[in-house]
Design a protein around this nucleic acid. Sequence first.
DNA 1: GCCCAGGTACGCC
DNA 2: GGCGTACATGGG
Length: 300
Amino acid sequence: MVVREKVKDFNVDHIFDCGQCFRWNREQDGSYTGIAFGKPVNISFETYMEEQGEGRLCIDNIDEAEFEEHWCGYLDLNRDYGEIKRILAEKDPIMAEAIKSGQGIRILRQDPWETLISFIISQNNNIPRIKKCIESLCELFGESAGSFRGRNYFAFPKAPVLARLTEEQLAPVRLGYRAKYIIETAKKVAADHAGAEPTDTEEILQTLEQLPLADTAKGYAYLTSLCGVGPKVANCILLFGMAKHESFPIDVWVRRVMHRLYGIDEKDMKHMADYAADHFGSYGGIAQQYLFYHIRQLEK
DNA sequence: GCCCAGGTACGCC
DNA sequence: GGCGTACATGGG
């Protein structure tokens, strides 16, 4: 168990139930259990006093070394979200209101491969079913990650494993027409990876794991070249799997916000993207998460 | 039966 | 390049 005191701008519901991740589940006590880096973990957060915005973060089933190596970055703990919120709140009153709804949001730095496949599954789908599909995919094709608090866990299946599957083998996961996209994308990613040995050619080979280091435009170009990855999914992968915080995914909910609250024409995606780039700049993706969380709260 | 869900591929103009 | 439309699946 790792404990950190005086953690600010952190709310487990805002972080794990804001649609950026699909493998974290809420427990009776309000904590969340999930799996990352091949290991099941429970995360709880206790605020010292109401309205204080500080609290104690507990991560169970890891040690200090694992915290430093993986979890500090995964939870984006070194970023000052208070400062980001101050900057964004000044942009407009709608954003200021949205930040109040999701004041404890943090953008996770998830595994690019898992994020890629998860968001291919997300297209034209709803969050509960996305979670079911991913869980089933891991149970059927992922390596066992042991048991934790009486439950068995499975790691996310790696690219070469999915690349070898047929649509028939994937059928039990109930992915629908997305099964084909996933097999094709897995083949491409696995092949790129296999071919990524140093060569004497000028051309820099692109692989998925190189993308977080590349600039956003290059990452976007690679991702949208994959089958089943369009503009929205690519931006989600850049944002949630590669910490490209300027990426601004536009889905049905964000369209709803931009139309209803900002008055932008419902089908003018270009205008929405331009608005985000102009107003929210390098924090576009974080702004998008406050808006996404906000509109969904309003609809509940 | 219909509509919807963190959209995309594909064909047509 | 901008438009429609089909697409698997399950919940409301």
